[in-house]
Computed example of a mutant assay.
Amino acid sequence: MAIKPTIYKLRIALSDLERNYYDSLSLTVALHPSETVQRMMARVLAFCINAQDGLVFCKGLSDVEEPDMWIRTMDDKTTLWIEMGEPAVDRVKKATRLASKVKIYSFNTKSDVWWAQNESKFSQLGASVFRFDATQIDEFSQLLSRTMDISVTITGESAYIATAADELEVTWQTLKE
């Protein structure tokens, strides 16, 4: 018998000062049995950074043919493809052929090594690469509860996050635009 995902309900008051985008998001997020809480919270933050009409979580770890998030048009064209972690160069190359825009968000302590090994290969590809601060993502994941209200304010390369339990800042670095 397969282990089922753990479901989280997040209500997010989002203020993206960079894009003048303000929204109230009600997200149902599934934590895949093989996924870490840190990865899931990095997914949630990447969702907030890219929030817009049509953005949805995909099957991700459950389906290797889909990214973690995407935006698809009515005629099945992919306009945005978002990957989490440290994907293989071949996977990103394929994504750039399938989508108008590709973004990668790395989030753990292996990110530096992965980027050092692949930077020259990614320079050839039309994908944007960002790295979250791994310690801050870990702190964000410690605030998680099955149902929670979150306030996220994005400015520059920072997200100020407030929950009933605590407040913190998560920063990221643009490795390739």
Rank of each mutant, 00 (worst) to 15 (best):
R72T: 12
N20Y: 09
V129K: 00
V44Q: 00
L27G: 03
Q136I: 04
R43K: 15
K101S: 13
R91E: 06
A164Y: 10
I7H: 09
K4H: 09
Y22D: 12
L10I: 07
A42R: 05
R72A: 13
D68W: 12
E169P: 07
A127H: 05
T147H: 09
I82C: 00
Y22Q: 15
A51H: 04
F132N: 04
C58F: 02
V170F: 09
T36D: 07
A165K: 15
T153K: 14
E66K: 15
W115Q: 05
D23L: 05
D149I: 02
T96I: 13
D133M: 05
K101F: 11
F132D: 00
K77A: 13
L31T: 00
A164N: 10
I150W: 06
E66S: 07
S62N: 15
W115P: 04
F140E: 02
A134L: 11
M40Q: 03
Q52N: 12
R97A: 14
I82K: 01
M84T: 04
L55N: 02
Y8H: 11
V102G: 03
Y21D: 00
V29E: 11
V152A: 12
W172Q: 02
S123T: 10
R39S: 07
H32W: 09
A2P: 09
T109M: 12
K110A: 11
V152G: 00
G156M: 10
I82E: 00
Q136D: 11
V56D: 12
R19E: 04
E66A: 12
L143I: 08
K110T: 06
F107S: 02
A159G: 00
D76C: 11
C48Y: 04
T153P: 02
S151I: 04
I137V: 08
S34W: 11
I154D: 00
S128E: 15
G60P: 10
I49R: 12
W115I: 05
S158Y: 09
T153G: 06
I49M: 09
S128V: 03
F107T: 03
E139F: 13
N20I: 05
D53W: 12
A99F: 08
E65K: 15
S145M: 10
Q117F: 13
V92K: 01
A159P: 02
L98P: 02
K93P: 02
A30E: 08
L98V: 03
R11K: 14
C58Q: 12
E157N: 15
G54Q: 03
D149Q: 14
H32G: 05
V129P: 07
P5S: 04
A30H: 01
M84W: 07
T171A: 11
M1P: 04
M74K: 11
A95V: 11
K121N: 12
S100W: 11
Y21E: 03
E119H: 14
M69W: 10
L125H: 06
I7E: 09
W114G: 02
M1V: 13
S24K: 14
D90H: 11
W81A: 00
A13F: 10
D53F: 14
